[in-house]
Nucleic acid binder design. Structure first.
Lengths: 354, 354
DNA sequence: TTGTAAGCGTTATCAG
DNA sequence: CTGATAACGCTTACAA
């Protein structure tokens, strides 16, 4: 609701006051801030001193109104429930805020209004209110309505997660296939010949890619590979954790028991731990090797500690911000995706087969 | 006419265009938006139709400049590493954005610049640039430099986490003691008489409170209680997970073996699982009961599923936003803290003693 | 290099 | 209830 009364001015030092204190005009202060090279060094010093002394910062609203630059990037938070938060909300967001800050931008969080879960309307609102210079989208699907809509609006954007061939290629992503291929090679190097994969929510492109990467590399190396895992559950696989465990247990009881399992997430790896133990086997050297994905803090609390794939969150965030600002500045929108490498963090859970 | 500014104007429907389309003046449109009661109904309809048709939204920068209201709340993200993200970043942030949105506010994320980890400077910048109407602080310590500084600046703020008696009491918090007391009563009701507590990073007030709440209720009920857990580690206890497990194992081997363990976080509960199993015991009914704290998705992936304390994230966020906006509107800053109850989610990990 | 003038889009004031 | 006028604080032309 719009408040009626006039708002009290906080300390609110204005450019005028700085100018007076430095004995120059408003515009000289503005120049000192926005084009320092145009101001004589000694004047610049004087102005900067006054700025520091008064603790002056330009009013961002006034600046935005005049210049058109909002110095703010919008992050469309994935639609999900606080009780089952998106893994990206932790970790990636920190990296994004840091990367944006380093580029002089702030990050504005937004989501579709609670209940009405229409991301398109949320984008429309934010853009129409001219609150951001660009948009960061995450958990992007191959044909994503958010991508299509942002492109239609003509607002600069970049996505964490690749888009299909028909969509604009303004994405940054990790190499999900490559990451799982590295996992497979790691396991193969340890001597494992029969390996299993545990996935979930495989309608999500990144989960499908991990599975595909696993199977492709296993085939290439001539390993015996089998993949299990249900579709349909949420991205963190809340639904049928129990049945997933059952699938792994069945494999472990089968004739050609895998000696190693790669999982599509750290939580799924935990399911593998449970299945392995339930079958009276052990995880790690001398037992069943297990790997996860995401390198969450969970990995370090498991025994043995979980080998996992670490995402280059800082590099992803920096690349997203960079591409976004290229578009904002009107430089040629590269129009190409960027795939960044992951890092395999080897811990006790992956060792030689027993 | 002035030349087009540096920046290309996006669709940018202005109030002027709406006024022309509706056949009224700018101010009538403004009134229709900000004080609809002052506009004749039939005129209002016409204006609203034009607004809808043109997809008009007021330019937030212009509006802010004029009115002083930023319609934005700043969230000072806890200082930590993306690789070891703060648990609040997931879950709480979703709830906060929703609550803010319901009150017509957006959420601006900010952190101290990477490297320079001074939250005070970050607050100064944001406030000086007049980018927000108020601040949300989290993971607040009893004597917190952020609280003191925000109070000194006179900027409206509210904190998730209570402040000490010398500080302004503009906090919302969960009842950490009460939550652990409920856990203790739950375990006692199941028949447990010897119970253990596993904590970590107990220099953090909320962790200390959980421990204290545990011990107090155990004493009140005449139970035999013992607490273990190191200080000094990060909030997620990355440091010495191994030694924590060792402490629990030692207790399990001791003469008066606890039949139940409450942990200060879900990850610590996982450590208890490991310790229990390492001692050849089982978790859950017939074995050692275990409870966690936070109700993260991890709980549902453990076997047996972990009993845990769920935080009322939506209520917390709503209360924080409400108190913040009270201050923004200049209404009497309540000056009192608000403690919200948690919810014990009972699952398979807590059962009758073996 | 610096100062002058104008206006970004909106809302508050005060006439009609 | 509506319409003209004046700011909010800043940055971009342009003149000195």
């Amino acid at each position: 609701m719009p408040e009626g009364p006039h708002r009290p001015r906080r300390g609110a030092t204005t450019i005028e006051e700085v100018a007076r204190a430095a004995g120059v005009s408003r515009q000289t202060v503005s120049n000192a801030l926005n084009a320092p090279r145009r101001v004589r060094p000694e004047t610049l010093d004087r102005v900067n001193a006054a700025i520091r002394e008064l603790g002056y910062q330009p009013d961002q609203s006034a600046r935005s109104l005049r210049s058109g630059a909002r110095r703010t990037l919008g992050y469309l938070a994935p639609v999900d429930d606080p009780l089952d938060p998106n893994p990206l909300m932790a970790g990636f967001l920190e990296a994004l805020v840091d990367a944006a800050g380093a580029a002089g931008q702030r990050v504005l969080l937004f989501r579709p209004g609670q209940g009405a879960a229409d991301p398109v309307a949320a984008i429309d609102e934010l853009v129409a209110a001219r609150q951001v210079d660009g948009l960061v989208l995450a958990d992007v699907l191959h044909e994503d309505v958010r991508i299509a809509h942002a492109a239609r609006l003509g607002v600069p954007f970049a996505s964490f997660g690749r888009t299909g061939p028909g969509e604009p290629q303004r994405w940054v992503d990790i190499g999900n296939e490559a990451a799982m291929a590295e996992v497979v090679r790691h396991l193969a190097a340890l001597g494992h010949r029969r390996i299993g994969y545990l996935g979930a929510a495989e309608e999500l492109p990144w989960m499908a890619a991990r599975r595909a990467g696993f199977l492709a590399e296993a085939r290439r190396l001539g390993l015996s590979a089998v993949a299990v895992g249900a579709s349909g559950a949420g991205s963190s696989g809340t639904a049928a954790a129990g049945s997933v465990v059952a699938s792994v247990r069945a494999l472990l009881r089968g004739p050609d028991r895998p000696t190693a399992f790669a999982a599509g997430s750290d939580l799924l790896a935990l399911d593998v731990y449970e299945a392995v133990r339930a079958e009276g086997l052990v995880v790690g050297p001398g037992g069943v090797a297990v790997t996860g994905f995401h390198d969450t803090p969970l990995c370090r609390h498991l025994h043995p500690a979980l080998t996992s794939v670490r995402l280059p969150l800082r590099a992803i965030a920096t690349a997203l911000v960079g591409r976004l600002l290229d578009q904002v500045r009107g430089e040629t929108a590269a129009g190409e995706g960027l795939e960044l490498p992951t890092e395999l963090v080897v811990r006790g859970s992956s060792g030689r087969p027993g």
